[in-house]
Computed example of a mutant assay.
Amino acid sequence: MYSAIPEPVSSDTNHQNKKRKVLLLGATGSIGSQTLDILREYPDHFELVGVSAGFSLKKLEEIMKEFPAVQAGGIALNDAPEMLASKKLYRGDNQMCDMIRDLDFDILVNATVGFRGLEPTLKAIEKGKDVALANKESLVCGGDLVLEALQKHGCKLYPIDSEHSAIFQCLQGNRIDQAARLIITASGGSFRNRNRDELEGVSVNEALAHPNWAMGKRITLDSATMVNKAFEVIEAHYLFGIPFDQIETVLHPESIVHSMVEFKDHAIIAQLGSADMHLPIQYALCYPDRMNITEEKPLDMTQTLDLHFKKMDFERYPMLKLAWLVGREKGNRGTVMNAADEQAVELFLDEKIGFLDIETCILEALKNIKNVENPTFEDLKKADSEARQFVRDLF
């Protein structure tokens, strides 16, 4: 199977001879904000030429003022007023793809969340651009379309998710075909010390209290249900070209070992670090170089105390078990799972359903929405819409 990541290169290969022009989508989220930190720290290496900021007009204006090289901004509001005379403003549902079409950039940082991130990923690749990818839904929903586009246009993906960045780093100096297993670690989420009976009636605030990471609401909830880890399994399959039966997950509550690779000789290489996203963002943008990051605190191994690893409990986390079923079935299965989850999470945050109802929504959507083999992007859009409506109609 085709690998979406770059082949390992010599560490003395310097990609920073000229400024890299960056187009950032999703600047207001956790990954987007930390990407801006990296760009601030290395103005001689990077030039932000375009940025999208969801519905936050104020934040968009602040970023466009701070980074003088920005030529254009994108906002999801159709009626957003003009801001800076020297900057172009893109509006509405197509603003991200319109910027990709019109702007001159070297790398796209896709830090959006959800199905809406798939089309910008495809458009950037079709333009011949590499993508630093935090939008896991691009591969969960449209992995086959993305791989086909990558092969056709000769582009690569640079993983930003901490787990996939860890695997990417562990593979340096090794061939992917020598890997026997990818071992993805999981913190267990907000309710890792509760059994399933204790999940009845948990509150939104309890679910959003992740013990290790400061993340957005949806990804924090997906960590609690392990939907996020299921998506990471599917994402790893597409990124690294590894069969599903060679991908495993393990509970690791400290979130210090971000992932591991076991090779055919049974050597295991692990990547360790703080619970901070600056490192994987930097690695994706600077690869193969490593830069000093003042934003991230170094990991003090004398203070980590014991590290614990526990076999995954699929009865406790049934949504994670779905990863292998959904991933192998392909078609629109990833899109249906993701859309059902997105809609169910929104209902839970609005306190219209219970926490365990999120699982019911996903299972029922997968059971009732017909699979489509070899779907086009339009087929996936239809499945996304159908799954969302199906979940809304359940309650």
Score class of each variant (00 low, 15 high):
residue 44 D to F: 01
residue 251 L to M: 10
residue 246 Q to W: 01
residue 255 S to P: 04
residue 100 I to Y: 06
residue 308 H to D: 07
residue 145 L to E: 06
residue 65 K to V: 15
residue 347 L to I: 08
residue 128 G to W: 15
residue 363 L to A: 07
residue 252 H to D: 01
residue 155 C to W: 00
residue 61 E to H: 11
residue 50 G to C: 14
residue 105 F to N: 03
residue 184 I to W: 00
residue 355 F to N: 10
residue 37 D to G: 02
residue 278 H to D: 08
residue 132 A to T: 04
residue 376 T to Y: 14
residue 55 F to D: 15
residue 4 A to G: 05
residue 361 C to D: 02
residue 304 T to S: 13
residue 228 N to R: 00
residue 171 L to I: 14
residue 91 R to Y: 04
residue 126 E to F: 03
residue 388 R to S: 05
residue 18 K to E: 09
residue 212 N to D: 04
residue 109 V to Q: 10
residue 258 H to G: 09
residue 80 A to T: 12
residue 91 R to Q: 12
residue 190 S to K: 09
residue 231 F to M: 04
residue 132 A to I: 08
residue 325 L to E: 15
residue 327 G to R: 03
residue 81 P to C: 11
residue 246 Q to A: 12
residue 246 Q to N: 12
residue 345 V to G: 01
residue 331 G to K: 07
residue 363 L to Q: 12
residue 309 F to W: 06
residue 284 A to H: 06
residue 162 S to T: 15
residue 348 F to P: 02
residue 10 S to E: 09
residue 199 L to C: 11
residue 163 E to Q: 05
residue 7 E to N: 03
residue 52 S to P: 09
residue 227 V to I: 12
residue 249 T to L: 07
residue 325 L to M: 15
residue 94 N to I: 03
residue 124 A to K: 03
residue 99 M to D: 03
residue 280 P to M: 11
residue 38 I to F: 07
residue 236 A to D: 02
residue 270 A to W: 00
residue 96 M to N: 13
residue 188 G to W: 09
residue 326 V to R: 08
residue 2 Y to D: 08
residue 110 N to G: 11
residue 62 E to C: 06
residue 148 E to C: 05
residue 270 A to Y: 06
residue 150 L to C: 11
residue 229 K to E: 02
residue 252 H to Y: 00
residue 136 K to V: 15
residue 351 E to V: 01
residue 212 N to C: 08
residue 49 V to F: 10
residue 4 A to I: 01
residue 373 E to Q: 14
residue 44 D to L: 02
residue 374 N to T: 09
residue 80 A to K: 01
residue 156 K to Y: 13
residue 181 R to S: 02
residue 13 T to N: 04
residue 29 G to P: 05
residue 257 V to I: 08
residue 234 I to R: 01
residue 175 R to N: 15
residue 271 Q to V: 05
residue 14 N to I: 08
residue 343 Q to V: 04
residue 392 R to L: 15
residue 127 K to S: 14
residue 196 R to E: 10
